[in-house]
């Protein structure tokens, strides 16, 4: 608890939220900064204090706590999730016919943004300058659709979905065309759009689309369409400490300053007393600091090394796989530069 912590420990371990700013934002626990502390890197100590707790997991979202790591490294994982975990996305669009009202370039852009279900780990990056593509670096999709009148429509109908056939083009109309041995390697239905119900274009009788698409492997740094997450973020665990007992009307008002469930009012010996129940739920709004009679009764802080991660996948890979892949990407970066260092010393 912050109240029982020494001043130095508070500076090292907590971010303090004040009325006019946030204190102790930066990491300061480096060797030589604090007398009496051994801040040199110690892998054993790190492993002893490090912890991960999975809070919630389903096929598209993941929430977990990562405790005992510095923001620099946690942020690296977050940044890699957003921009450096590869996926497959439509990159080349060959339009053989487009008589719809949506322009070629707009349609091509829309196609690019559709999440493509295919395991990027089974593919290679396409070499720059290669326009053809091979079975190891390209997925071919075809969108061939024509709108016609519905011969069975009732005479006085005005509903387009009754009058016409194929007047709405959805992502499910993109059909996978295997290249080379892909048909043997990947089971049928394993490759295609993640969501079938994304509206791509609307047609009227006589209009048609005839398009071939090449999906390639890429990363979010190059184009956001390659990003494997809808969002990936973390927040620090809030810590709310009551410095004095808060009773009566003040307790009720204190409760309303925070998110629901953070503070509850209990009846102790006929008095209404406020109590911090679950500070994790707080949004850290600092509303309480606007009340002059309340602001000196509470201390608002966040635990510096407790990260509440939230990862939402686009559905291409499960979120837990994405996190594993992100960690591997950071390891690969380190190994790359270690290799470079070694080869530089050989020369």
């Amino acid at each position: 608890m912050a109240a029982s912590m020494s001043n130095v420990d508070e500076i090292r371990n907590r971010v303090i939220l004040n009325e006019f700013g946030v204190r102790n934002v930066h990491t300061t626990d480096f060797p030589g900064n604090y007398p009496g502390y051994d801040d040199a890197w110690d892998q054993k100590k790190f492993e002893r204090n490090f912890r991960i707790d999975v809070i919630h997991m389903d096929e598209s979202t993941l929430e977990f706590d990562m405790v005992g790591i510095d923001a620099a490294i946690a942020n690296a994982f977050r940044r890699i999730l957003l921009a450096e975990v590869p996926t497959m996305a439509v990159e080349k669009v060959f339009i053989y016919n487009n008589t719809s009202i949506i322009q070629d370039e707009i349609l091509a852009h829309r196609l690019g943004l559709i999440p493509i279900k295919a395991d990027p780990r089974l593919f290679e990056y396409r070499n720059s300058g290669d326009d053809e593509g091979t079975e190891i670096d390209t997925i071919q999709l075809q969108l061939k659709i024509k709108c016609t009148r519905n011969p069975r429509a009732t005479k006085d109908s005005s509903d387009p979905s009754e009058l016409y056939l194929n007047h709405m083009v959805y992502s499910r109309d993109m059909k996978w065309v295997p290249i080379g041995n892909q048909a043997d390697v990947f089971p049928e239905g394993s490759i295609g759009p993640v969501h079938g119900d994304i509206l791509l274009a609307q047609l009227r009788p006589g209009q048609e689309l005839d398009i071939i698409m090449h999906c390639v492997k890429g990363i979010g740094k190059d184009h956001a369409k390659f990003s494997p997450v809808a969002t990936a973020s973390y927040r620090l665990l809030p810590e709310i400490t009551l410095l004095q007992p808060v009773e009566g009307e003040k307790a009720e008002r204190l409760k309303r300053c925070f998110s629901p469930g953070v503070i509850e009012v209990e009846n102790i010996g006929g008095k209404q007393v406020a109590k911090v129940v679950n500070s994790r739920l707080d949004t850290c709004s600092r509303e309480v600091l606007r009340h002059d009679d309340l602001k000196n009764l509470v201390k608002l802080g966040r635990v510096r090394d407790h990260f509440i991660f939230s990862v939402e996948s686009t559905g291409i890979l499960p979120p837990e796989v994405l996190v594993s892949e992100a960690i591997k990407v950071l390891m690969a970066k380190c190994q790359k530069f270690l290799g470079e260092l070694d080869s530089a010393e050989m020369e």
């Binding site: 991960i52 999975v54 594993s324 960690i327 530069f337 270690l338 260092l341």
Partner: peptide, 26 residues
């Protein structure tokens, strides 16, 4: 620099192992 890269690799390895174990447990 070499030590830093090695330490960071070790950190990642430990985070990865812990994460995979905890996901399996969950």
């Amino acid at each position: 620099l070499r030590k830093g890269l090695n330490d960071l690799t070790e950190v990642c390895q430990h985070v990865l192992n812990t994460f995979e174990v905890r996901v399996k447990e969950f």
